[in-house]
């Protein structure tokens, strides 16, 4: 109940920021439409709608990192958190209160992404529902990264690190825009040592109905999500005691 009150406040703060709607929902859709238009003129296997949509869906989640990090960093910059630290809210209430409101937003974003993909020609199958469901563990990873960065950076720094650097890195290293095999070498090794390409390949496997192929990608995503969440909790607790 106490945690839900805090989560409700965070939901309102996020939804009332127009940039959230523009970037969170609009930007991934623009990219989806643009790459589909390119695909229509110059067919590239990577940009076929069933390959592209999972990648865009995961790319959109990088904005969840931006939202959660911005919210926490702004709260830290003001005195509201200080006030709330003197209330009966426990550390776990803060962590869940920041995390849970963004999950439905991530699911909604992914759902809209797949609806637009259907309009663009994606076959309607039950796997689309599974794909949207598998966005949940992936979104936890991106939200945890937001908690982590929001606990150590100012809201201005968050804009640079999460808004520019992370969105680009997670895109380049995801295998959505170009085939990582084309670059190969160290770049490919780095990409496969990070969770972003695994998140995309997980989504692609689910959308294609190749459920045996979700491994080991799911483990990579879950492993990174748990690690990011654990580090985020530690950093949040540390700044809480400062």
């Amino acid at each position: 109940m106490k945690m839900l009150s805090f989560a409700k406040r965070n939901t309102k703060e996020i939804l009332r920021d127009p940039l959230t709607v523009i970037f969170g929902l609009g930007f991934p859709l623009v990219v989806l439409l643009l790459l589909s238009a390119i695909q229509a003129n110059i067919p590239v296997p990577m940009f076929e709608i069933e390959q592209l949509t999972p990648g865009i869906s995961v790319f959109g989640l990088s904005f969840m990192t931006l939202f959660s990090a911005t919210l926490i960093a702004k709260d830290r910059g003001g005195s509201l958190l200080q006030r709330l630290y003197t209330t009966p809210l426990k550390p776990i209430d803060f962590i869940l209160g920041y995390t849970l409101p963004i999950v439905p937003f991530a699911v909604a974003q992914s759902g809209i992404c797949y609806i637009v993909a259907i309009i663009l020609g994606l076959d309607i199958t039950v796997n689309i529902l599974f794909s949207v469901a598998f966005v949940i563990p992936i979104s936890i990873l991106f939200i945890a990264l937001g908690l982590l960065f929001g606990s150590i950076l100012t809201d201005k720094q968050v804009g640079g690190i999460c808004g520019a650097l992370l969105t680009n890195l997670s895109a380049w290293l995801s295998g959505t825009w170009f085939d990582l095999e084309l670059v190969g070498g160290t770049f490919k090794d780095i990409a496969y040592a990070l969770p972003f390409v695994h998140a995309v390949e997980l989504e692609r496997a689910v959308l294609m109905g190749h459920f045996a192929d979700i491994f080991p990608h799911l483990w990579w995503v879950l492993g990174y999500a748990i690690a990011a969440l654990a580090i985020a909790v530690l950093l949040f607790l540390r700044q809480m005691k400062k």
Partner: peptide
Amino acid sequence: PQETAVAPGLSVRENLELMCGVH
């Protein structure tokens, strides 16, 4: 606190509801 500690995106009533909720 020293700085005004309110949730800027919420209405006055919603700020008060937030405090009621966390208590």
